[in-house]
Design a protein around this nucleic acid. Structure first.
Lengths: 235, 235
DNA sequence: CTCTAGTCTATGGTCAGACCACACCGCCGG
DNA sequence: CCGGCGGTGTGGTCTGACCATAGACTAGAG
């Protein structure tokens, strides 16, 4: 199969990226320049740029000045989240499998963080602040869920593995709409919030105590319990 | 931020997909038709189609007949693999993190499969055949690695979680070039192959015996050992 | 001298229309 | 009956134009 024109452009850009000629924070040449340089039409360059954008490799902006143009970024979670959304939409990615993957990844992350927190307890500060914010009574379900999502992603981040963080973020992105929809119909949301708060504190305490395995078990129960009660992933 | 034209098109297609108006195996209308239907230019439709292609949602082919056009597919692993390649290239995704994620996912998968194989041993047949093929002495390093990759992905598939399978496939895709490059410089490839063969059989035996935890441990050692010896991910 | 408003310019965003390459489908002549 | 050959629908690519935006520049007013 002969490479399509836009794939040739992608190959060139990948080479530049790997060789360090393009750095994160730097900018791609203008579309018209790239078209001329590679001897292709601007339309083909634009198709390549669309793919790069979808892959979280660049961000485009119109106008002039240092913020404009195609800037190289590094957002590995974005394409994975988008991919999960698309394949959830096409009904070929069961929500239950996402839940299973979350249990695996988050319980592992909790274990790791438990070990790390024993040596450097201060790393847990961001997570503590999120829990404090979630203890506020005046939160809407939507706000609470947003903080909840950040709490889980933060814990995963603390495990210090970019791949795990990316997958975790991607799953939250993909699943968010389903959670919001399920919660909107949940009869006893106030009670649910109370329980979630308690479980969150349990997780953080276990992690802070350096008890990784316990933290992992609580996380697993926390996630499984939530999805079992709300019915997300049961269809 | 006003939605760009191609994003509008993507939104329409996502709606159709979620509503079941577009099914896997079905075909998108022709680009010219879509352009007319949404009142946009064909270029914008094409940009949307490029994104869908990158997301593993469609496959395009020229010509006429049932195989031509944009066919809806379901390849969630493809975009994740591509994303990992891109972000490995931009040096913002350490190979070591990929290795860590592999250890987590594959050892978990081995545990799961161990439990499942106790009830239905025949599910291991494809994995057995791959090991037999790998025992052939006449394999080049490249061929061996290809079978090795399939063995690992097959084990992950047997765990029956689409997300895990996708992430696993993606990691193999992303890491493949690095492994090939490292192996090409490895001094004692013959010895390495012998060891890998032995470890693979050990994994499969533990799985077949229903000893999930043991299988998980062997898998973890197998992966960590390989990367430690070849030096992949140490830079 | 300073500030403001208007203009310039570089950039991505979008469009229209054309032509090519390809692969099936069906007609028509042998 | 069958084989070649043109029709037709599809994506692939190019050209060239114009619009929208946002920073940079500049001339004029105060």
């Amino acid at each position: 199969m002969a490479a399509k024109t836009y794939q040739v452009v992608l190959g060139q850009i990948e080479t530049d990226l790997a060789a360090g000629r393009l750095l994160v924070g730097g900018r791609l040449p203008a579309e018209r320049i790239l078209a001329q340089r590679y001897g292709v039409s601007r339309a083909s360059v634009r198709e390549a740029i669309r793919v790069l954008e979808a892959m979280g490799v660049i961000r485009t902006a119109v106008g002039s000045g240092p913020e404009a143009g195609a800037t190289v970024i590094a957002e590995p979670a974005a394409p994975m989240g988008a991919a999960m959304r698309w394949h959830l939409a096409s009904h070929h990615l069961p929500v239950a499998d996402l839940v299973g993957a979350r249990v695996l990844i988050e319980s592992w992350a909790a274990e790791q963080v438990g070990a790390a927190a024993a040596a450097a307890p201060e790393i847990l500060l961001p997570a503590r602040e999120l829990l404090l914010a979630m203890d506020s009574a005046a939160l809407s379900a939507h706000e609470f869920l947003a903080l909840d999502a950040r709490f889980h992603v933060t814990l995963a981040e603390l495990a210090g593995n970019v791949v795990i963080t990316a997958v975790m973020t991607a799953m939250r992105d993909g699943i968010q709409a389903y959670v919001t929809a399920a919660v909107a119909q949940y009869p006893d949301w106030a009670g649910m919030v109370d329980r979630l708060r308690g479980e969150h504190h349990g997780i953080l305490e276990a992690v802070a105590a350096g008890n990784g395995p316990l933290a992992g078990r609580i996380v697993a129960d926390h996630i499984n319990g939530f999805y079992a009660d709300t019915g997300v992933g049961q269809n």
